[in-house]
């Protein structure tokens, strides 16, 4: 019975995250448009865009290899697998035992590597520039992410996401300065990983400032739809991850009743909406950085992560 419930929760979680991903992008775009005084498209526009792209014909460059053709689906599959592991509204899903934070980070690296290789496959300047910058930024984001994980492990004793979220939800770990510092670091990493302002501009049309978009310039039709869906899914995954770890209130425990799951669902929707609106407000209020300022930005995240760990050592005499 427990396994069955875990299975149902898992299926529900996957369906919800997949269905919500384009909506999250739509909400952010719509709020951003309102904030700068435009009417903006409907929040459902990303769904229509995906459907339109899927029904189009694909044009592929003459010298594209199998890497170019397989990369979008590989990136999507890796991101989807990672998204399946991050708990959204309920803990204790069937994937809970394998939901390891390092594995989630690794799956996102698979997606990044696949897209970077695809960017280099046709041999255009833009694809190469995007791949190079993407991999360089990732090199700076990774240490910050690992220090976030380091601090969480100090608190929870494991890299298993389900256990970490459960302990933080119980509040047994208390409210700590370190968690606040780590939250800032995690937000910086999330901005870099998703190509959001101030690291990259997802809506740019100026090629020289592109990072994420530059890698996928050669794609069209259903392949592009898969790439857009992957980006939306990755953003939702990061918001869900931040919600599960840093705003863990309301998430349903494995032995919860139907009411508990409904509360968890409501809490998740509320948290994601709030984070999406906050992201839109943040993106509207600041400018994109110069490319070579990004390492400094992520370097600050690394220092915050280090500071959080040291704070924890000093304050608890952790041993």
């Amino acid at each position: 019975m427990a396994i069955l419930i875990a299975f149902v929760l898992q299926a529900l979680h996957i369906a919800l995250v997949f269905a919500a991903a384009p909506l999250v992008v739509g909400v952010i775009r719509s709020v951003k448009a309102r904030l700068v005084g435009r009417a903006g498209p409907s929040v459902l526009q990303p769904y229509r865009d995906l459907l339109r792209l899927v029904r189009k014909r694909t044009v592929v460059a003459e010298n594209a290899s199998a890497v170019f053709l397989l990369a979008p689906m590989a990136a999507f599959a890796a991101t989807a697998a990672a998204a399946a592991l991050v708990p959204s509204f309920a803990l204790g899903m069937i994937s809970a035992p394998i939901a390891d934070l390092l594995v989630v980070a690794g799956l996102l690296t698979i997606a990044r590597v696949a897209q970077a290789l695809a960017g280099m496959d046709v041999g255009t300047a833009f694809g190469g520039i995007g791949a190079s910058r993407e991999m360089s930024f990732a090199a700076f984001a990774e240490p910050a992410l690992l220090l976030v994980i380091f601090t969480l492990v100090l608190l929870a004793g494991t890299t298993n996401l389900d256990v970490v979220a459960g302990l933080l939800r119980d509040g047994s770990l208390g409210l700590r300065v370190s968690l606040g510092l780590v939250l800032v670091a995690a937000l910086a990493v999330a901005a870099a990983e998703n190509g959001r302002i101030p690291v990259d501009n997802p809506a740019t049309h100026l090629e020289l400032t592109m990072v994420h978009e530059a890698m996928v310039l050669e794609y069209s039709g259903p392949d592009l739809a898969v790439i857009e869906a992957t980006a939306a899914l990755r953003l939702t995954l990061w918001l869900t991850l931040i919600a599960a770890v840093f705003i863990p209130f309301g998430i349903a425990v494995p032995e919860a009743s139907a009411l508990g799951w409904l509360t968890g669902l409501g809490a998740w929707v509320g948290k994601i909406l709030a984070l999406a609106v906050a992201l839109a407000v943040f993106e509207t209020s600041i400018a994109k950085m110069r490319v070579f300022r990004v390492p400094e930005f992520l370097g600050i995240a690394v220092l915050l992560g280090l500071l959080a760990a040291v704070f924890l050592f000093v304050s608890t005499g952790f041993a």
Partner: peptide
């Protein structure tokens, strides 16, 4: 989803760049 589209399959062309 693509089955309902107007054209299927991939076409080769010069790189867009």
């Amino acid at each position: 989803l693509a089955a309902r589209g107007i054209a299927l399959g991939r076409e080769r062309g010069p790189a867009w760049a």
